[in-house]
Design a protein around this nucleic acid. Structure first.
Lengths: 160, 160
DNA sequence: GGCTTTTTGTTGTCTTATTACACTTACTGC
DNA sequence: GCAGTAAGTGTAATAAGACAACAAAAAGCC
């Protein structure tokens, strides 16, 4: 058992489900879900936290799947572009998408003390942001929302 | 005349006002508004766009105010920490705060084609974000919202 | 099979950011 | 004023993150 967002779950099932979902989506879209790409997604799903490109590369290297930075970056770019993973700008790190398939505006809750990340969503259309952008004639394509704070586990630790 | 966000304004006044405001705030808080820090803020205000740390450093270097990266990073860290500037994570760049003084949750509208940045604000407390965070027991300290899109000027260029 | 497109392997380099340490300036209490 | 301490600056070196460019291999198509 491990942390999914901040709640427990069946982790092995969650990895295989994520990979299967991606495989299906790639097939449907005519994309190549190659071994490297599949493996990178598995690594991200297995860790269930934000990982740097070089962390991912280290895994690949140990498995003989590629040793140079571009290998990791290309796979990560593929996953991000197709919605199977997200980049957390604040951490220069990547995380598997937990809401794969849906076209969504991700929101990340990042714990400052343990660096765990939870993904949730919002509806930008309903927010002040859309209104403010419209007011100045700015058309929004993509929104990144990253909230720094303390996760429940770390709050408990502090109180202990 | 130059772009302030996406609307025109008296730029010289805006620089001196920004610096004066920061000077006052530093005095009130017992912070040292040193020449390097002042100059970095002036540079950010003068350009009125997101600048990389090395862009800022280049200005300092030409003026003999420091030539090594830490000089720029320390000044920028000071400005960010005290709310006189913000870091745009998505661009690895910094921009002077246009709402100095108020404790606010900044929102950035970033133009993908010309890289200009407009700052606005929102009220996270009223949003779904606060609700979602509360629901999982996550306490939010700071929120970064960065919207990629197209600014009015670039939209006009495309249409032309 | 031959052709085109996509993906991978690899080298090298560039940008962004920080650590570490010496030195100087500013504040504090006496 | 002046020691003692804290804060800030100068500098060198290096770590971390990211990508451009090109060659080789694999996949998809006719």
């Amino acid at each position: 058992m491990s942390a999914f967002g901040f709640t427990s779950h069946d982790h092995a099932a969650c990895i295989s489900a994520g990979v299967a979902q991606a495989a299906t989506a790639c097939q449907a879209a005519g994309l190549q879900f190659t071994p490297v790409r599949r493996r990178v997604l598995e690594i991200l799903l297995a860790e269930h936290r934000a990982m740097g490109a070089y962390d991912v590369l280290e895994h690949l290297r140990r498995e003989g799947l590629g040793s140079q930075p571009p290998v990791a970056y290309r796979a990560l770019d593929f996953l991000v572009k197709n919605g199977f993973a997200h980049k957390i700008e604040r951490l220069n790190a990547f995380i598997a998408c937990t809401r794969s398939g849906k076209d969504h505006a991700p929101v990340f809750l990042i714990c400052s003390s343990c660096a765990s990340v939870m993904e949730t969503t919002w509806e930008p259309g309903e927010s002040q942001l859309g209104v403010a952008a419209d007011a100045v004639g700015f058309s929004v394509n993509a929104v990144v929302v990253e909230a720094m704070g303390t996760c429940p586990a770390c709050r408990a630790d502090i109180g202990r």
